[in-house]
Design a protein around this nucleic acid. Structure first.
Lengths: 343, 343
DNA sequence: ATTCAATCTTATTATATGAAAAATTTTTTA
DNA sequence: TAAAAAATTTTTCATATAATAAGATTGAAT
């Protein structure tokens, strides 16, 4: 591999001159620049990144860290939390980053209270200049550790005081979805909420309440069922609500696509046809919603946009570490498909 | 950040001694080693990876390169090819790699004949010591370019002469699936095959034929429909076959989960209940199969295993560049769910 | 038993890696 | 001739490794 020195020889200049040309220094005469660029071209020179990293004390990599609160989920299980959020968001990050000279290093991290003193390896071993923290359900101590080592970061999927973030207004998103069901004439709407402790679960429930209140529909406790955000969770919640409660909902709103799929399985078993006999709308708009049969009407979080904005934020933060913290809320939109009918 | 020099001072030895200790040299006295390790511990020293990379001329990163033959697919569209294969396989790679001191850099690459002279950036800029090439549908010139630059690699999802690979015997996998349908009493089985030009499409069709032959069921051309590997493809193929051909299949075998989901949508529209009126079995076993309603019986490719084996192969190749090339076939297994009934 | 060279251990010094940036020098321009 | 511009030399980054040195041990000759 040719080095900067070989280029210098070829062009008949010094190493430094080559370095200055590469870094677009203004104090190089055009004809010198031309000579150097020609030599670079001729030799097929590519800068040695390790050397650049050593002298500049930077790492030309950013880290993508999908954070969970559990070990290696098996993605294909009906009862597992899937990591669609991470994959959808990462696509947006890639799309922006490919125009920059950064590599993207991924490390799955489990942030539980058990390893609250741990840092991701790519951070500990200083392999990255900044990180994307992806996912909303994890132990906070993890973030505190990252703050201690002062690594630039952007959080995706939730907010955190004084850290750049890109997320969704989940209250509003749920409000939009439930409001849609109401606009289609539904009044008795079963709401499947997520686990109690997560902030987003609470926000979503507030969104449900808001939509009801606005429409003058009284809130009924028996129309709310709680479960995990998984397909199995949705299945069990719907089954439980419809067998034990004295309710006759015409529609269901679930807090995740996976839950909706679980609900659909229950209705399939009971020979209840969607949307003819019951309507379903949901929150996420993942591949599960588009590929469900019938396709699910879902509130799209625009995760691609979330990723893109996050990439922009981190790049700006690296360029200007003192810039003001931003908390971006990416707007949602409802995608109408085939799982809801008017009544 | 403390350097190796600070550790040397602290331990009262030279830099080289510290380096030797870190690299587990046998020619260091135990008490010296102890002194050094204590100093490392005390100062919280972490080696500077850029410096290691510069002196050793290695890069402590491996590349994961999902290769497509088209630009940025939109994952959530009903008509797009999804990248589940990549995500499932990468999980296995991560699982193995986390025990090694390599980072994993990802770069999506589009290998079309149009950019047949291009290399992935992470390869061109020498950011990685080896790469995982993931996916089966792409222009071969891409592989030739990689061979030219002599970067160690493992191909996942297909084989290639003289390159380490991990893949599936798609003929056998299809044979297993169709054989299963036959064992359940089905004789008129509609087969949805993939696009003509891909090798895996051909292999799958051979598997279908083999199962029929073995059971003494005559092959009928009108029971084969061709389409893209997508949900839309499956939908259109089934629709076309059932409206234009004079056939009455009791079961369908699709060449991908996405196709199966498309087929299910068609049957849903026609009010044909699965599996009561028609059975479906498929090839892939992705999240689409587990979350379909009813859940799809599918031939599992064990992509996690594919990833794990690939990681092992690449690590071994890096340790011993002259070792013999391996082409690993990961066994498949049929996962019975709810989409097939006996007749 | 004593001495001295040879050998083995263990550690140190010197050098190399490839580029950036600071400090200088040379060249050009005003 | 001074000032400005352009290029060069030198230093630095943090580590690995080759070359070397110091000290300890062994062994043979006296």
């Amino acid at each position: 591999m040719p080095t900067i020195y070989d280029v210098a020889i070829e062009a008949g200049v010094s190493k430094s001159t080559v370095s200055l040309v590469i870094n677009n220094s203004p104090k190089i005469r055009p004809e010198t620049k031309y000579k150097v660029l020609t030599a670079i071209e001729k030799l097929g020179y590519t800068p040695n990144i390790a050397a650049i990293e050593l002298t500049t004390k930077r790492r030309l990599n950013l880290g993508m860290i999908p954070v969970t609160n559990h070990d290696s989920p098996k993605r294909t299980d009906f009862d597992s939390i899937d990591d669609n959020y991470y994959h959808d968001v990462s696509r947006g990050i890639y799309d922006v980053m490919k125009n920059y000279n950064y590599g993207l290093l991924t490390e799955q991290f489990t942030a539980t209270s058990a390893n609250s003193d741990k840092l991701p390896n790519i951070v500990k071993t200083k392999r990255v200049d900044g990180v994307f923290i992806i996912g909303g359900l994890f132990d906070d101590s993890f973030i505190k550790n990252l703050l201690k080592v002062k690594i630039p970061m952007v959080i995706l999927g939730r907010t955190y005081p004084n850290i750049d973030s890109v997320s969704t207004d989940s209250k509003f998103a749920t409000y939009i979805g439930v409001q849609y069901l109401i606009s289609k004439g539904h009044k008795e709407i079963l709401f499947i909420e997520g686990p109690e402790l997560t902030p987003s679960s609470r926000m979503k429930k507030e969104g449900y309440n808001l939509a009801l209140t606005e429409a003058g529909i009284p809130f009924r406790e028996e129309l709310v069922a709680k479960s995990e955000f998984t397909a199995l969770g949705g299945y069990l919640a719907v089954k439980d609500a419809l067998t034990n409660q004295n309710i006759k909902p015409t529609a269901v709103f679930t807090s995740s696509d996976a839950m909706a799929v679980g609900a659909m399985r229950y209705f399939y078993e009971k020979n209840v046809r969607i949307p003819d006999q019951i309507s379903i709308a949901t929150y996420d708009d993942t591949i599960l919603a588009t590929h469900a049969v019938p396709a699910l009407t879902s509130v799209a979080l625009n995760k691609d946009q979330i990723g893109r904005q996050a990439a922009r934020l981190l790049l700006e933060r690296l360029r200007n570490p003192k810039k003001e913290v931003e908390n971006i809320i990416v707007p949602v939109n409802l995608v109408e498909r085939d799982s809801v009918r008017s009544i």
